[in-house]
Design a protein around this nucleic acid. Structure first.
Length: 430
RNA sequence: GGAGGAGUAGCGAAGUGGACGUAACGCGCCCGACUCGAAAUCGGGUUGUCAGGUGAUGAGCUUGGCACGUGGGUUCGAAUCCCACCUCCUCCGCCA
């Protein structure tokens, strides 16, 4: 959520910035709501002040044994008017809130303007896509042939866009997650969090998934609960409504959770395999940082995520998303894209964003800067470190051998009980 | 799911319709005094938020509103009475 005072004082600039990301900011709606609320609030406050004062007088009169009925009569009128204004004020405040909650964040000045992903900017690449001297298989074929992945049977128990991992396939998923968590907690200074996978509406408003993107979520029927689409939601909201000590910043948390996404409207996209699933696992990195430190932390968080790809020897590139491609809540986003041989292209495997104070304002997460008395909203950041399912895909495809087996990168072998290669022996073929 | 109890400042805790919620009292923390220094002692300070005024759209000062778990209600007036919800504790049931 943008700061209301900031909008008020920078109407033109806000409108211009928002148009860069394809959002049409209704200046008049804002001005009207803002003015009217202010007017009503003023009268409301004046009346409350009067009532407070008169109530004290009534108390005094009564204490000294006098008759306070004229004042009481008068306050009955005032009370009725206050009640009227209460309702009107609540209405206006709600309208303003609804209006503000659907406005996306402003992009940082370093974000390249552009409408869609074609304007994204490649920052750097790591590794070389491998040249295969045999016909390659994609991860579905590899996984099914090895007996470590079953999409058919997943359809029986769940449906399309679900998967079942078997044998070394299941083990590989866990190994990747454990490996990532170990690197982030032992080497990058993150603390692991294991949150609930079902969160309430409030948490989703805090990080910006609601009220605008309800159709992307799985909602529990009859409850005010949703399945988390990313650990960003529970982990960021963990500190909602809190005032943090500056000396504790930055706070770096990591969480391994399943992620549930309805993927409504994505039918026909990535229909084959594990790339786009209703349920997948992800190790998430979340940071709470000082306002003046958050962009440095974004670089750090991105490099923390990159280090996983490097250790797994997977070729990837880093791109800066242009204004039109940047997510609703984000001010700046770097995507990490891993090389997928069967598609002959780089595919997103992590999205690292600085939300500045956009989420912190919604969730009310503040800190006390040491040089000032007033509190200030923290800057929140997050990024995948990494999406485990897509890492599984990248690993199978990039490390496949001519005989259909898959080598396991050195860094991961300790997590696979020393297994060096996945063969049909490690799967379940029925 | 049922029955009871509890949520007040960083922590503990008093207040149970009006007599200052910046809210008793205690602890902690900050500043100062005493001291060579420390401890002890003494003095002072120590919630957030919104709006108006002043100021430079800063720091600060100032006036007022709001907040005693959350949201409603009763009342001239609610931390205090009533209702609903949330969280925690105890017991019963059920369960991993």
């Amino acid at each position: 959520m943008l700061d209301r005072t900031f909008i008020r004082e920078n109407l033109d600039r806000v409108a211009e910035k928002l148009s860069q990301r394809g959002y049409d900011f209704e200046r008049e709606t804002f001005r009207q709501l803002d003015d009217e609320e202010k007017e009503v609030r003023l009268e409301w406050e004046e009346l409350r002040a009067k009532r407070n004062k008169t109530s004290d007088q009534i108390a005094q009169v009564k204490r000294s044994g006098g008759d306070a009925s004229p004042q009481i009569e008068e306050m009955k009128q005032v009370g009725a008017r206050i009640k009227e204004l209460d309702g009107r004020l609540a209405e206006l405040a709600q309208s303003m809130e609804d209006f503000l909650l659907t406005i996306p964040n402003l992009c940082h000045d370093s974000v390249p303007p552009g409408e869609d992903e074609s304007a994204n900017q490649e920052m750097r690449t790591f590794g070389e896509p491998r040249a295969f001297d045999f016909p390659i298989k994609d991860h579905v074929e590899l996984g099914e042939d090895l007996g470590i992945l079953d999409l058919q049977r997943a359809g029986k128990i769940a449906g399309a866009r679900f998967a079942v991992y078997l044998g070394a396939g299941a083990r590989l998923e866990h190994a990747l997650a454990r490996f990532m968590l170990d690197v982030h907690t032992k080497e990058h200074g993150y603390t692991e969090v294991l949150p609930p996978y079902i969160n309430n509406r409030n948490a989703f408003v805090g990080t910006g998934q609601l009220p605008k993107f309800e159709q992307d979520l799985f909602k529990l029927e009859g409850h005010d609960f949703y399945l988390v689409p990313t650990a960003e939601v529970p982990v960021t909201n963990l500190l909602a409504q809190e005032i943090l000590e500056e000396e504790n910043l930055p706070i770096s948390l990591t969480a391994y959770t399943p992620c549930f996404r309805s993927e409504a409207g994505s039918y026909g996209k990535d229909t084959r395999g594990l790339i786009r699933q209703h349920q997948f696992n992800k190790v998430e990195l979340v940071k709470f940082a000082r306002a003046d430190d958050s962009y440095q932390q974004l670089e750090q968080l991105t490099s923390d995520a990159e280090s996983i790809l490097q250790r797994l020897e997977l070729p990837y590139r880093v791109v800066t998303l242009c204004s039109g491609d940047t997510g609703f809540s984000s001010a700046k986003t770097y995507d990490l894209e891993v090389w997928i041989p069967s598609q002959n292209t780089y595919r997103e495997i992590s999205s690292c964003s600085n939300f500045e104070d956009f989420q912190a304002r919604r969730a009310s997460i503040r800190y006390r800067p040491s040089d000032a008395k007033k509190t200030r909203h923290v800057h929140t950041l997050n990024g995948s470190g990494l999406a485990v399912g897509r890492t599984w895909v990248a690993l199978l495809e990039n490390f496949q051998e001519a005989d259909g087996t898959v080598l396991i990168p050195q860094a991961l072998r300790p997590y696979m009980d020393g297994l060096e290669r996945i063969t049909v022996e490690n799967g379940l073929k029925l």
